[in-house]
Nucleic acid binder design. Structure first.
Lengths: 346, 346
DNA sequence: CTGTTAGCGCCTTCAA
DNA sequence: TTGAAGGCGCTAACAG
């Protein structure tokens, strides 16, 4: 019955089941897929063998034979430690699971070469499609043509190149920022600093555009002394904020272009001299418990992921939308205010 | 040259390349794998065809043919929105990538049936192994025997059953908690509440054990009025904390058993009546900016993931450790103190 | 140097 | 109701 040796018994194949049940492989196949036309007696003999051997069909072999898709979706993000990306991933996973698919994950740590490598690896594994939060500003390597026609959906950034006709899920970077900065202006601020992302990036430029538009709306000129555009890092942001506060004529308010910058600024402000009004892009947990009043451009990062997965899913159906032109979805943002915990000033 | 129709040209196969280069498939195979023994002339003809067709080898077919592993690692977590899990996932991804593997991700949303479903799905896809942060307390369905001998590594919780001999990566739940609670006691507290996880869970029971041990060390009896053991939720924790503070003889300090509970407690304390000392398990971003002094049991969640991936990786090498007995790794914890931002009390 | 044969695990087609 | 042949995309093993 049971053998004593501990050889790690390779996975049983359908042939093993067939031999054990003394039928042909075809019969086993039929039973497992619930096809009719198998006698009850044979069926139960097969099922017994399946159970006895612990047989489990090889999905990889199935999809090869069926020429079917693998049911895998590639997801490429730049930094899973940032809640923005992990929530996005959660949204992708949830929607994918609902459509019977799984997510294969790649973290680029912001390196474009790694992004390219991951995308090609996914393509070689014959994933059904890929969702990318692009790390860089050139997306040529994401063209489906480069990837054997593999559908690609961009998240948080549109295709860099107009000729690159990819689906994309975006935030209202421009509108959200404009609204937030306008609110700062409405509160009477005239010297508002901008702690932004690299100007070359989509979000970096769009949010800066929103900052400028709000100033323009109010007839205020942009003062470059107050503009910092750099890669997101809480440490860098903290330092930049301190520098801004130390200017001869310091800003009275600050707009931070993403959650890293906002958090860094909070650290600096908390031990800064005067009170500076702070608004920023991205909502985050604990924003309500900080010692700094905050106005945040808020949205559902999970929704971004869900919508990206949905766009991709639509491309995988054999219907008309699958071959239609690229679509673009904008996830709405709203302004949220946190009064800030009153700090004692001894 | 180029055709005008927009049929979504199926991925070219090796046969297509062979025909296009007028050689046999074997020659193409050899060229692509860089095998010697192909004339330079033939080789370049093949490479030209590969480029022209945009051919990309099918990894699924390769691993089927080679009987090799898929290079996929299954990762099952309960809630990717919790930074603990997303950082763990990051650690797994990083180590996996270093060993040329990819991660396929599943979120259980704390449902054990979904966990089982995911694990079986991964097994069917012939992943090399699975890393699970178990959602429930019965791990029988994770036995490699149930999974065709697939290696399984547990994270954050040991196997429920002594007969279940699985690798595991753990935190020092007991020691960390004991140390933290001891510190509260050393500060003079005698009525310390415990806002814990379900007693049935490993972390729930271990951390409670630590809480008890610290009391025992100091010769203080546990007072059940101050003990709450419930599922982690910031909202629940906030409510429980409020209730504890409203007791006739309220606790003077509180130990929270995970990051959800700590955050919930902070919300309650922030508007609570008196000053209550707070210690908790799990460090988290922004702990330094909260209006509540915090003593946190801190560790590297990424390290948990890395070590889990390492244990799994070791099982996949054809060496002696791969077939050795189950191993257990404990990731160290340390106590971190945050003074808390001084709040004004008008 | 190049090609033919056979088969990984599974399933469609056709025959018995 | 069951089975045999053939092939999905690829590559070892063996010719020539």
């Amino acid at each position: 019955m049971t053998s004593l040796d501990r050889t790690p018994a390779p996975q049983p194949t359908m042939r093993d089941v067939a031999q054990s049940a003394r039928v042909s492989m075809m019969t086993v196949s039929r039973v497992l897929r619930g096809e009719p036309g198998v006698s009850a007696e044979t069926r139960s003999r097969v099922l017994d063998a399946v159970l006895a051997l612990g047989y489990r069909p090889n999905e990889m072999a199935r999809s090869l034979r069926l020429g079917r898709s693998t049911g895998l979706i590639g997801l490429v993000v730049s930094n899973l430690a940032n809640p923005f990306y992990s929530e996005l991933a959660l949204g992708v996973e949830a929607y994918a699971a609902e459509t019977g698919r799984r997510v294969i994950l790649g973290n680029t740590a912001e390196h474009t070469d790694r992004e390219q490598q991951l995308v090609h690896d996914f393509a070689s594994r014959r994933v059904d499609g890929i969702i990318v939060v692009p790390a860089g500003n050139d997306h040529a390597h994401l063209a489906p043509a480069e990837l054997g026609g593999l559908p690609v959906v961009l998240a948080a950034s549109p295709p860099s190149n107009a000729a690159l006709d990819l689906d994309a899920v975006l935030l209202d970077d421009f509108g959200g920022t404009r609204e937030a900065v306008s609110r700062l202006i409405a509160r009477g601020h005239r010297r508002i600093a901008f702690l932004g992302l690299p100007a070359a990036s989509w979000t970096g430029s769009e949010r800066f555009r929103g900052y400028c538009a709000a100033h323009d709306d109010a007839g205020i000129a942009i003062d470059n002394r107050y503009v910092r555009q750099q890669r997101p890092s809480t440490a860098l942001a903290e330092q930049s904020t301190a520098e801004l506060l130390a200017l001869p004529e310091p800003p009275t308010a600050l707009f931070t272009a993403n959650n890293r910058n906002t958090i860094g600024a909070c650290r600096a402000l908390r031990r800064g001299p005067g009170r500076v009004d702070l608004a920023g892009f991205d909502n985050f947990e604990l924003a309500d418990l900080l010692p700094v009043p905050l106005t945040l451009v808020s949205y559902e990062p999970q929704e971004l992921g869900r919508q990206a997965a949905r766009l991709l899913s639509d491309r995988l159906q054999p219907n008309e939308v699958a071959i239609g032109p690229a679509r673009r979805i904008v996830v709405p943002t709203e302004l949220v205010e946190y009064p800030g915990i009153p700090v004692s000033t001894p």
